[in-house]
Amino acid sequence: MDPEIIREYIPIFTQAFILTVKIGWIGIALAFLIGVLCAFTTYFKIPVAAAAVRCYVELFRNTPLLVQLFFIYYGLPAVGIRISAEVCGAIGLGLLGGSYMTESIRSGLEAIPVIQTESALSLGMTNGQLFRDVILPQAFTISVPGIVANVIFLLKETSVFSAISLMDLMFTAKDLIGLYYNTMESLFLLVIFYVIMLLPVSLAGTLIEKKVRYRMFGD
């Protein structure tokens, strides 16, 4: 490995890193939004919409992101819907993540026994109070480990973006290997930048899980 080459490549990789992180977190924010909306739709059993959400969740949980991106990026333009690679990456990640987030949030909501709803209502709580003070705090605690796992999973999935010619970390590494044949240096930087991207999230995730658990259950 040549340290000179590594120093030369760092700015190129930094640029790719910023792009990857940006699109990744936009996608995750989108996924969370979709997840919350869809989870509440199924929780309240809104007719038609709940069935549509089920179809969406099953469809996107059972297909790979690569195939979804190919469909959005290469398939849709054939019928006149043209989206730029960056938007396509964020939307694809958002749709995939949305289906996973829906499941995590929904399982948290459904874990609260019905008797708590009944008790709260019999104590004279309004629906708003019931939700804000009884259901949401508990449901959120139960959902947190799932949500953290999803965030890490989605950040890892960003490596697929190179397939739709987004200049992300993976694409940059592949490009440099192809152009200059500095395989080891490119792979080394690729690993380092993914560690920078994911290790803090992984550590923070474990910490958040512990904190939330402690506040809720005290152990």
């Binding site: 890490i152 890892k156 490596s159 993976m170 690729l190 993914y194």
Partner: peptide, 8 residues
């Protein structure tokens, strides 16, 4: 395995 994408 937790933090490295399979692609990498």
């Amino acid at each position: 395995v937790r933090i490295m994408p399979q692609m990498v």
